[in-house]
Write a protein that binds this DNA or RNA. Structure first.
Lengths: 218, 218
DNA sequence: CGAATAGTGTCTTTAAGACACTATTGA
DNA sequence: TCAATAGTGTCTTAAAGACACTATTCG
């Protein structure tokens, strides 16, 4: 059986202390005008990863080279598209800041249940948020939600926003700096805010954490 | 673009202290006679999970109701099939024992690199083994690699085979029995072997472990 | 009996969590 | 000065690992 395949992207970023997801308005039928996740049709069978990169570059307005895209899952649907049966392959990624791509908006994930996203996109967001929350424990993905230079407090706020908890600053600092390859200290310090200036860090080489960051209320 | 989709299954089980994967011989071109993973073409776009269940039932000879199938990943290939471009969607599962389905053999995963599996199936096996090794830490999947009734030593051997390590029987016993919902004790005890008879356990209700089983040499 | 395996007790070490305390800035 | 935030010290508690020890079977 021949089906058409679309590649869908769940791109998350933190804005004003809220976890948000990039969405755009559908420009054509079916469900014209409804919010949906950025996506593109697959144009060649051996271009799965390339099409995901294209979605990032063209729909998200962010060069794929700056991102780490990860495959999430594949879903089938019989009548998504009037032209025939379709399968969607979902990917996810995180951005250190919202892009200002034309037509793209960032929807707080807390508002997704009431935003009536097109097709099964609401469940894809929920799947991606679960995946991100899990990956925060075992990987260094949180550093990709921060700027190139970030303070320990900024990194900690990523965990607090995604997990919806408060973490002890002292223990978090010790845990992160004690995890080989998580962050690298720089000689720069923050300035301007209240309180003692904080040291800036940048991403370390590690992708996986040897010992996980404990998520409270486990 | 219209492509054909195949659903591929990586089914693993332990035989004689070795982790093995179910493979069969290709019956048609291309690569006729080469070993490959069990698979079926997708026949309807909204039947992704159903087709995976069909592969289990028809190719593996194991009713899908007895298994937990999990999606692994999707891969594209331009010239897999001479009839046109194709995408494969891989799933994985574990069996408590090899099935005796006609034409199916169980290949030790250690032999996969030299067995020249068709297409990208060798990398799918490697991806599934990694996933299984990871899931042993965080889930109760190991109980599905055992019979309905199993001893603590049999459960421990699953970990030892997949991880390729030795675990302390005393600490393993305490950790597993102390993990809520992992196993349920029965009143039965083993008999016939050397040494003190062991208590039989059966699977508990839990799917995820509150606190992971530590993998040595982390 | 001794060899083998099951299972418990217990000590040591490590890591997490709580939180007091010091450090350094802006108002 | 105080309020605020950064970061260190240190105590308590929980869990992992090592391994001695007991329990129960077979040959």
């Amino acid at each position: 059986m021949q089906v058409s395949i679309s590649v869908v992207m769940v791109a998350m970023t933190v804005i004003d202390g809220e976890l948000t997801v990039a969405v755009c308005k559908r420009g054509s039928a079916p469900l014209k005008g409804r919010l949906e996740l950025p996506n593109l049709p697959l144009t060649a069978a051996d271009r799965l990863a390339q099409t995901a990169a294209d979605v990032a570059t063209e729909e998200l307005g962010c060069p794929a080279a700056d991102l780490e895209l990860e495959q999430l899952s594949a879903h089938g649907a019989a009548k998504r598209d009037p032209r025939g049966p379709a399968v969607s392959i979902a990917w996810w990624t995180v951005l250190d800041a919202p892009t200002d791509q034309e037509g793209l908006t960032y929807l707080p994930v807390a508002d997704v249940p009431t935003a009536r996203l097109a097709f099964d996109h609401a469940s894809l967001v929920s799947e991606a948020v679960d995946r991100l929350a899990r990956d925060l424990r075992y990987t260094t993905v949180a550093t990709r939600l921060c700027d190139d230079l970030f303070t320990m407090a900024q990194l900690r706020r990523v965990y607090e926003v995604v997990w919806g908890v408060e973490l002890d600053p002292a223990n978090f600092h010790r845990k992160v700096t004690g995890s080989t390859g998580f962050v690298e200290p720089t000689s720069k310090v923050s300035q301007g805010g209240p309180g003692r200036p904080a040291q800036f860090y940048r991403r370390g080489e590690a992708r996986d954490l040897v010992s996980p960051i404990t998520r409270p209320t486990d």
